[in-house]
C-alpha cells in the first residue's frame, strides 16, 4: 500500500504554504510511490484524511519562535505535547490521534511529521520568505528520504 503524504497549509498565505508546496514537489519526484494530499484544514477536520493508510508523513509549517526560520523538525505524534485543554477552535494532532484510536478508526501505524519553522504565516497573497524558500528543497528531501526508508524496510522484510 502507498504511504500518505499530507501537505498542510494554505497556498494563498505566505509561508503558511510551505507544507503544500513541499507536498507538490514530493508528488513530482515520487509519482505513484506515495499518495499525496493537500489540505488547508486542521485538527478534527483532518480526521477522515488519514483513514486507511498504514504509514503517513505530515508536512506542516510551525510558528513558535523556538527555532530559526527555515529549521526543519522531525516529530512523531508521541513527541507532540499532550493537549488536554479545550482549544478555541481546533483540536491538536495529539487529540486527533487519540480520538481516532478511541473511535477504532483504521489509522496509520507509523506517522512522521516534518515541520518547518516559518517567518510569516499571516500575509494573504504573500510569497514565501527567502529563508523558507531556500530551505524548501531540504524539506522535500527529508520527506522523500522517509518514504525511501519505509520502502527499504518493506523490501528487507520480504527477503529471507
Amino acid at each position: 500500500m502507498q504511504p500518505l503524504v499530507l501537505g498542510l497549509g494554505n497556498d494563498l498565505i505566505a509561508d503558511d504554504a510551505v507544507g503544500v508546496l513541499a507536498a507538490r514537489e514530493v508528488k513530482q519526484r515520487l509519482g505513484r510511490r506515495a499518495h499525496v494530499v493537500e489540505s488547508s484544514l486542521s485538527g478534527l477536520a483532518l480526521l477522515d484524511l488519514m483513514v486507511g493508510y498504514h504509514q503517513a508523513v505530515i508536512i506542516d509549517a510551525m510558528y513558535n519562535g523556538r527555532h530559526p526560520p527555515g529549521s526543519i523538525v522531525r516529530l512523531t505524534p508521541a513527541d507532540l505535547s499532550k493537549v488536554v485543554a479545550p482549544t478555541p477552535h481546533f483540536a491538536g494532532l495529539p487529540e486527533l490521534f487519540s480520538l481516532a484510536k478511541h473511535l477504532e478508526l483504521d489509522y496509520p501505524e507509523e506517522t512522521v511529521i516534518f515541520a518547518m519553522e516559518v517567518e510569516d504565516p499571516l500575509t494573504i497573497g504573500g510569497s514565501l520568505s527567502l529563508t523558507v524558500r531556500q530551505a524548501l528543497p531540504a524539506l522535500v528531501n527529508q520527506v522523500t528520504g522517509q518514504i525511501a526508508s519505509w520502502e527499504n524496510e518493506y523490501e528487507r522484510s520480504l527477503s529471507p
Binding site: G43, Y63, L80, T87, P88, G92, I113
Partner: peptide, 28 residues
C-alpha cells in the same frame, strides 16, 4: 484561567488564520 477562556469559547471565535501550523491548534 479556564473560567476566563470559557467566556470567549462560547462565541466559537473563528481564528481561521495561522491555526493549522503545528501543533494543530491556535496557541493561546
Amino acid at each position: 484561567l479556564n473560567l476566563v477562556e470559557v467566556a470567549f469559547r462560547a462565541y466559537d471565535p473563528c481564528h481561521g488564520c495561522a491555526t493549522h501550523a503545528l501543533p494543530g491548534q491556535m496557541p493561546l
